[in-house]
Amino acid sequence: MTPAHPRISQSRRHPVYAGGRPHRGGSLSRMSHAVEKTSSSLLRRLRNPEDQASWGEFVALYEPLLVRYICKKGLEEHDARDVVQNIFISLLRKLPSFELDRGKGRFRTWLWQVTHNAVVDWARSRKRTKAIEEKLREGWKEGNEEPDSEWDTELQKRILEYAMQKVKERTNPPTWACFEEHLLKGRAGSEVGAELGLPANTVYVYAARVMARVREQCEAYLEDVGNE
């Protein structure tokens, strides 16, 4: 065992998708440079006016989630994108007064509430067709104050998806291929290695390295979202 490869899982009490408590500080060693930048709370960074990159990252992470979720509630993508603009405006207005640290899961619920209100406002502000109205009613039980399970599912999926995208962007392609081909697609390490001209052991090392980065990235986002 080489100290160059951290044991992320040891610090973990829950699987990634269940949103465990994050690994804090510690010996992130070689990947720490890349990871550290993103491992602190995105919401916290968003409130720092010096942090120019955080808003773009926030939008990239959450816009697809919101569009997808709102479309599932019965809106066309075009309308969903309008609603998402309103959600972002609300968020940016309310964010300064949002308390980050008071318990887990607040942002998850809060974001859902802002989304819910924005969809309801949108529906109110225009003449809805009967079809949309019915679809909305089905997708959205009247008086619902808490996020539905679909929200949690979509939120988690999006975070995993985006975390992988982020890691892929800053990982060199052969290293990424080891992770993708071997771990995600389940192909044999030796087979993947042969294609890439690498020994199977190297494939395992690279795959593990990428996996660690992905988990780290997920944790950073999941910390914001929390989970009850």
Partner: peptide
């Protein structure tokens, strides 16, 4: 650890089929 790793991997594999919204 192994269980967590497997379960994380399963979750990550689950996102591959998602319809991309960009």
């Amino acid at each position: 650890r192994l269980e967590l790793f497997k379960s994380d991997l399963h979750a990550l594999r689950g996102t591959i089929k998602m319809k991309p919204v960009s």
